[in-house]
Design a protein around this nucleic acid. Sequence first.
DNA 1: TATTGATCATGC
DNA 2: GCATGATCAATA
Length: 251
Amino acid sequence: MSGHHGGSAPIPPTPRWGLRPPDDAGEGSTRPPSAPGLLARAAALEGRTLGELAAAVSLSLEGGALRTKGKAGTVLERVLGATGGSAAVCDFPALGVELKTVPVRPDGQPRESTFVCAFSLVDADRQEWSDSWVRRKLACVLWIPVVTPAGSALAERRIGRALLWQPTPAQEAGLAVDFDTIMGLVGIGRVEALDARAGRWLQARPKAAHGRVRTLAYGPQDERIEAMPRGFYLRARFTGAILRDPAATPA
DNA sequence: TATTGATCATGC
DNA sequence: GCATGATCAATA
């Protein structure tokens, strides 16, 4: 066993997407390619700089680090024809594929954790991994590493080797444990004891526009309390292990 | 350096 | 406000 996922992948048959010249990355791309086609297309981007890709899809990378958070993701969405935008759906609804760019050091290690989605604190006791949004988001992810040397300018960063990943049963089991740990804490009214240390692979961290944002939650006595909104993040050591070996089960 | 907690931009 | 896209910056 191992090296193999459950076999119920949301990957459609394999029609193929007529491969196009690598340098047409800039054009519209409104069709939904197959998942393998999407991967092929992403793989063809390896070595290109974010600056080249941004120009190809008419996006500007101007503004400085503070103002360009999220730009890499936006550029790749556009280059690969992701739909969805700000809707609560996968990037490629027809394929069930979620696109994630991840900044990596030259050696391939992620520099950051990966945000997955926010979650409700109010009905934590009724949420289950099996039908959770975080599970669906992670069911099939197209990872695109962006090589980010220390101090590098956004436009100079190069695309690494794309990877289409689906959790192995073991990986999913681990993620489910973390989910239960986190939601369990919130479910019994211990949200104030919840911090980023919980969860081996998946953690919960604040997710809001600024520090004064609060959302409804329940305390130990079932009293209503105001709490910081939280989101699920994949720890860098987990995504790092996956990028090296899609079937890995890191500590 | 790694991790945690805080924050930035955009669209609806 | 909350969803999307993440990275910044202080501290352990």
